[in-house]
């Protein structure tokens, strides 16, 4: 018995199998705790959708070069919180004036709630994430170039 388990464990081809089994077991156990799970996720950065706004679905209020209220975790750590959200570049201001259906483009253009979160309040996430991309690409390009050269 022990020997057979040892044999399964000792093949690295079975690594994925083992991990998948582990995750499945966890999911199975976790399934019992599902009824206790209730949604309370909208304390931070909740969405307020205003279909009539030209920034839909990302209208969070505020005037350019002024601030707006953003439900961050630690507002005191980001003193200029809300400025980025409220800011519109000239291009995005222009877009916002002509049409109500380009909200996504406007918000993705510098300034906007997502930029606020990604660069300002949760900037460290982005640091790590770009570093991951950097490392992964370093691996890929090193292997690729060695293969060719």
């Amino acid at each position: 018995m022990i020997r057979r388990i040892s044999e399964i464990l000792s093949e690295y081809e079975n690594l994925t199998f083992l991990y998948a089994v582990l995750v499945l077991v966890v999911l199975l156990i976790g399934a019992f705790s599902l009824p206790t799970i209730t949604y309370q996720g909208d304390d931070l950065y909740p969405k307020t959708i205003d279909r009539t706004s030209t920034l839909d679905p990302y209208d969070r209020g505020g005037e350019p070069f002024n601030t707006t209220t953003v439900a961050a975790q630690y507002p005191e750590n980001s003193p200029y919180l809300g400025y980025v959200t409220a800011y519109l570049t000239p291009l995005s201001l222009f877009l916002a004036e002509i049409t109500p259906h380009l909200g996504t483009t406007i918000v993705s253009h510098p300034g906007g709630i997502i930029d606020e979160i990604l660069y300002n309040t949760r900037g460290l996430d982005t640091v790590v994430e770009t570093s991951i991309l950097f490392t992964a690409f370093a691996i890929a390009s090193y292997l690729f170039r060695r293969r060719n050269g």
Binding site: K47, P57, Y58, T104, S108
Partner: peptide, 9 residues
């Protein structure tokens, strides 16, 4: 459905 347009893009 959750209006996550940018993520969708």
């Amino acid at each position: 459905a959750y209006d996550e347009a940018l993520a969708l893009l």
